[in-house]
Design a protein around this nucleic acid. Structure first.
Lengths: 113, 113
DNA sequence: CCAATATTTCGATTATTTGTGAAGTATGGA
DNA sequence: TCCATACTTCACAAATAATCGAAATATTGG
């Protein structure tokens, strides 16, 4: 991963983690910026800034729909970030990924078998 | 996880991510601060600061051994952080954890079966 | 074209983070 | 006890990040 730092930085912020969570909750069809603002209680310009940071980090996508701009979480990028951290950390020591493994199995999100 | 933000912040820094990586490479027995400094090329006081940040975030541990202080990665905490992010993101959408699942299986770090 | 809506960009301010030399603390050995 | 070693803490300057109102931009409907 070229810039894990950028993605980590983007997530290492209470407001932005909330934004990301709200977008995950909203699902793949995403949420208009205005609605997001209501959901997370953030001034419009602050929200816009933070969405910009998340999007630059690759964690969210933005598409225009009429007057609104629809933001959505980029699930693949998030998965890639976690996978990167896992591989980067697991090397030589399976102890890191044991708890993760449990969660992955519980979440029933098996890869293409 | 009480403070995922704190852990994410700690990792969202080039120097600190390097430190953490070096400690993972060093394995469970850890590394003295001085050696770490050589490994990552960081001034003593800067290193100490960053180690403090990592330790406050729960990602590393420190124990004194004679004149040296031995730092080690806290694998469990790292795993918990990733697990938290995964659960927080996977909710309702398995798309996030699919790539992770692949890595977890490849790393052969199965949980207690 | 004009007004209304939805969002972004700008600019200024305040807060936080970073890096570092110098001074301080703890430990072990002569 | 005195000195050297191994780190940490302090103080502070420089760099970054966060916030928010006001002004700017894009889009739609009348």
């Amino acid at each position: 991963m070229k810039s894990a730092i950028e993605a980590l930085s983007a997530l290492a912020h209470d407001g932005r983690l909330n934004i990301f969570r709200a977008l995950v909750r909203a699902g793949p069809q995403g949420l208009a910026a205005g609605r997001l603002g209501e959901a997370v209680g953030m001034a419009a310009s602050t929200l816009s800034n933070n969405l910009n940071i998340l999007t630059r980090a690759g964690l969210t996508t933005a598409v225009r729909d009429g007057r609104s701009i629809i933001y959505a979480a980029d699930y693949g990028r998030m998965g890639a970030l976690l996978a990167y951290l896992m591989e980067d950390c697991c090397q030589g020591s399976p102890a890191v990924c044991a708890p993760l493994s449990e969660v992955v199995n519980r979440a029933a999100c098996a890869p293409a078998s």
